[in-house]
Each structure stands twice: as C-alpha cells, then as structure tokens.
Design a protein around this nucleic acid. Sequence first.
DNA 1: TTGTAGGCGTTATCAT
DNA 2: ATGATAACGCCTACAA
Lengths: 332, 332
Amino acid sequence: MVVTIRDVAKRAGVAVSTVSKVINKYPSVSEDTIARVNKAIEELHFIPNSVAASLSSKQSGRVAVITDPDGQTLASSEIMMQYIMGAVKAGNEARIDVIPLFFSMLKGMTVEEIEHRLEVQNIRSIIMCGLDNDMEVLLDLVKREKFKNVLVDMPMVDENTSNIGVDHAQAQKDILRKTITENEGPSASVLYISGRTNSYVTEERVRGAKELAEELGYKLTIVDGAFSEKKAREITLEYGRNHDIIACGSDLMAIGAMKALTDMNIFHPVCGFDGITLMGYTGKNMNTVRQNFMEIGEEALREAYRLMTGETGRSIKVPYNLVHIRYEDVLA
Amino acid sequence: MVVTIRDVAKRAGVAVSTVSKVINKYPSVSEDTIARVNKAIEELHFIPNSVAASLSSKQSGRVAVITDPDGQTLASSEIMMQYIMGAVKAGNEARIDVIPLFFSMLKGMTVEEIEHRLEVQNIRSIIMCGLDNDMEVLLDLVKREKFKNVLVDMPMVDENTSNIGVDHAQAQKDILRKTITENEGPSASVLYISGRTNSYVTEERVRGAKELAEELGYKLTIVDGAFSEKKAREITLEYGRNHDIIACGSDLMAIGAMKALTDMNIFHPVCGFDGITLMGYTGKNMNTVRQNFMEIGEEALREAYRLMTGETGRSIKVPYNLVHIRYEDVLA
DNA sequence: TTGTAGGCGTTATCAT
DNA sequence: ATGATAACGCCTACAA
C-alpha cells in the first residue's frame, strides 16, 4: 500500500540495508548499485518515512525550532514567522521533521524536564531564535550538550553548538554612518535608544555605535529602551529635542521614537534595525538594517543538519542590507 | 536511559500492552491496574514517545497545519502565526505532533503527490487555514477522504471533515450596524470593498452587508478589492468621495482605504475585519471584528483529534468581538 | 561491497 | 481483564 524501503530493495534486487545506505549516502556502495537503487526509487516514487527513520536512528532526528513571539508585538510575529518558514522549508527539502516550539510552552519547566521532553520526542537538534539571556533554562539546555544547537543571534560556540546571524556591530555602524552622512554630518549629536540590556544583539549594536562615535567623533548618548516601542516613545519625548539624530536598536523602537517626534512636531532623522514591514506604514522613510530572517531560518536548519552528521560547531555570519522601507514597498 | 513503556510495565508489574491501554484510555482495564500503572508513570516521569506511537498506530497520528503566509503581508504573517501557535500549543498538551506546512512548498505538486508525501510522513489529519478556492489541489485532497480535515473558514463538512470559524455574515452585519449607527445613521450610503471573490469568507461577508442593507435600507455599493491594500486605496480614491461610510472585507483594505481618504483630505468612517495589530498603527480608531486566531488554531487541533478518534465531521462557530484598536492598545 | 538480523518504542491482534 | 507477540519502516552492527 505504502511503498517502503523493502519494495525498493526487491525491485532493485538488493537488500534493504543497501537501499538504506544509498538513501543516506554511505560511501561503501558501488556506483552500479547506487544507480539501480535510485532507478527503483524513482519508479516506485519512494519517499523515506522520516518518522521511522528518527525512531530507529539516533543519528538522523528531528529538529525543534524554539521561538518566543509572545511579546505579541507585530514585529516579533513577523520575524518569528520568517524564521519558522525558513526552517520548515529547508527541512522539507532535507526530509527533516521540523517541530516548532514556543518559549511559553516551556516556561516553568526545569532543564531536566525540557531535556527529557525533547528527548522522548526524538528531537536531536534545537534551533533557538530571538531568545535573550533571561531564558536561562535554555542556556543551560545548550550547555548540557545533549542536543545539537543552532543559536540565532547568540554568541556561544562549542563542539555541538553553532551560532548564526548578521554582524550586528558592523551593521549598526553602517546604518548609523549612512544616516549621519545623509544628514547632519559628523558633528551630529546622536541619541541611541538601545535594546534589552541583557541581550547579545544589544551589546553588539551598542558596541558598533560606540566604535563609530570614536571614529567619526560625534557625541553619543545611550539610553535603555528595552526593545519597547512605548519606552522609546517616552525616551524621545524626554531627550529627543536635544539631539540631531536618533538611532534605535530595533525598528519598533524607531517607530515609537518617530511617532513621538511627530507628536512633538519636530523632525530628526531616525534609524532602526531589522527591516520589518511595519516600517513601511509610518510614512517616514527611516533607514534600517534589513535582515533576511527566512534565509537565516533556512541556514539554521542546514547547520543543524550539519551538526547532526557529526560536524563541529562554528560561527556563521549572514549578509544584510541597508534600506529604507516605504509604504509603496509594502503595499500588496 | 530513556524511560520506556517497558520500564513502566515492569515497575507496575503488568504487561506493556496493559500500559499502552492505560495510556490510551482503553475501556477494558480495571480501576485497580489503572491506578497502579499511573503511579508507575508518575514515579518514573514517563512520557510516551509520540514518534513511536505514530509509527505503530494508524489511528493516532500527526497533524499538519497548512497555511499560506506568502502574500507576505504583515496581516497574514500575524494571523498565520497565531493559527500555528494555537495548534502547536494544543498539540503539545494532547501530545500530538504538529507539522507546519506552507502552501508554497506544495505548489506545483499533484494531489497524488501531496497525498503520498503526507502519508509517508505519518500524517493523519490536516488543518487548513486561510486558503481560498484557488487552491484546488487542497480541495481535491479533502475530497479524497484519505485524511481527517479541519478547514478554517471554508464551508465543507463530511464524515472526515469539520470546519471552524466565526459567523462571517453575522459579524459583518454587526460591525457595519455599529459603524452606521455611530455615524451617519441608516440613511448612509455605504461603499463596501470586498475581499477576493472566490473566497468563502468574502461571500459570507458580502451576504451580511447585503442583508443589513435591506434591513436598514441604506444604499450599498460593492466593489472588488481582492483583499489588496493597494486596490482598496485605488477604489477609495475613485469612489470614496461619493459615500458616507466605507466598509472593508479586511483590515488591510480598511487601512488602504483610510490612507487614501487621508490623502484626499476628507474623512469618512471606515470599518475593517479581522482585528489585526496593524490597525493600531493607523491612529484612526477604526471599527473592526476581532477574531481570536490563536484560539481558532487550538480548537482546530482539538477537532482534528476528535476526528482522528473516529468522531464525524461537524461545523464549529467561534465567538468574535467588535472592537476598535488604538495605538495605545498595541504599544508594548 | 552486500546481506542478515536485531533493535527503536508503541500499538494491535489474539490468546488466555 | 491481562499478557505475548507480531507488526510499523527504517537503521546499523556484524557477518559473509
């Protein structure tokens, strides 16, 4: 009824184990049998059952994608969706099961519980997206080295752990330099509204802003906006008047800042970070760093696969673009 | 190493099959052994391996959630994310694997191919969200009755198929009535910008608008906006001047219409449909129907489970709210 | 290089 | 009401 590896073996005139070896690209199979087996696979439209595979093998397993879109902001929902889509897409191509998990489901569980839970689900690798240092359980989980980990926007690397993301410091420098040169020039006074302080990306972006300040010699004031649109708004209402340029550690904060400026009836250039669609709805043409979240999701899945096949962890930088998003760009 | 059903059996002093029966709530087990087994399960922190279960059982399997966020609009990405989160959450509680799929991955495949693909993935049930009649393959898939189907916002029902969603006609009437009475009163001339014509929800919403027009006696002009923000904008630029109220078949179109009015420097009340966060960024206080997409996702998963346990298809209506979303509401 | 056979953790079918 | 045991589809020593 359903075509199995046995049918393929019979058709190709070989043993099931040989078929398995072909499927999993074992080296020790002759070109000749590879061809015969592949022919049989074609003819029978055989698709390996990934459930059976992950049950039997501790090598090829399933990968969980953990996100936390529960800030419930539009931005995070868009970004997390892209991560998940990318991972699912790449997983589909590689015939790897991708299991989405949300941080809210894990909250309150101990590391052991989470680990156990994932283990019995035959999960062998975890992709973590958009998490910050608050989520200690997850960091512990990584450290226990039970799984292969791919961390998006977190610095750790070890035997079983890779990380992936853009170069946040460099990107921050780039977008800030662009905004400054397009406007006030190096003499500008810059208000930097930073993201959550316990997050790696914030540290990096702040570092970038500082480095550029030294390089160009502008005056830099850093205030903690905690990735909150509301907070960015309040900060801008308080300090916005005394600065020439407002740089934000996220688009959402940039939007909050810009709205505040509008309400104050003054104008300063504002730049953000992420490149979310929502930026197009402000009608303000703000500069921002566009990250390709879907591409990152895909790459993360591929990296998970790489780790599962025994390769060792590494650090991956992905490209970004400097853009400004206009209403026309997001209008469908 | 990992606690299995065997360990539980040993501990409880029964056979593995008995443990399985307890787990799956078979009727033919004595209260006494049920208690003993549950005690052992507790003590050993046993969690059943759902992968093994779905391999072995053709009864209890995994459920796929198919969405299509590829319109790439902010609205759909928010909505689809909610559906997926809901399903994953409910699946997590019921220990059912939820596999997200995206329509783009299925595009170009024949029904047979899709069916086959899902089958070998041990998928027994499919939840389809936000699809319209264009996606004929998927409708064919439903008709073939190989899987249990839960359709969000599509009318079909049969032995293996349930549908779920709000009462779109009623909701459209409600929100329109509210908007009219708050403003011009029954003598108003209403411009209705409808969604894609081949979609069930559009039909229903249009029906609601028409019924209310008869009831209240207002003048109703219906124009096809195809769920497009851009099209709604163009329509409004062309016809907006001659109407008192603009009702739209989606929030996105409402936003497009409102932006057009603003550009024309005139004001008419605009109402939308869906209740997406983006509405808060327009600063216009538009009325809309808020659907609880996450709740719908959860309910859909539970319904899928119900169907998989042999129950027969049915139609489920979920509640909605009439709201207007302000910037303060979405500010985090 | 290829084949044999014993798992992987559950469920389901028969006996008992 | 309970227990043995053969699947489910694949992977992987180990043997040939």
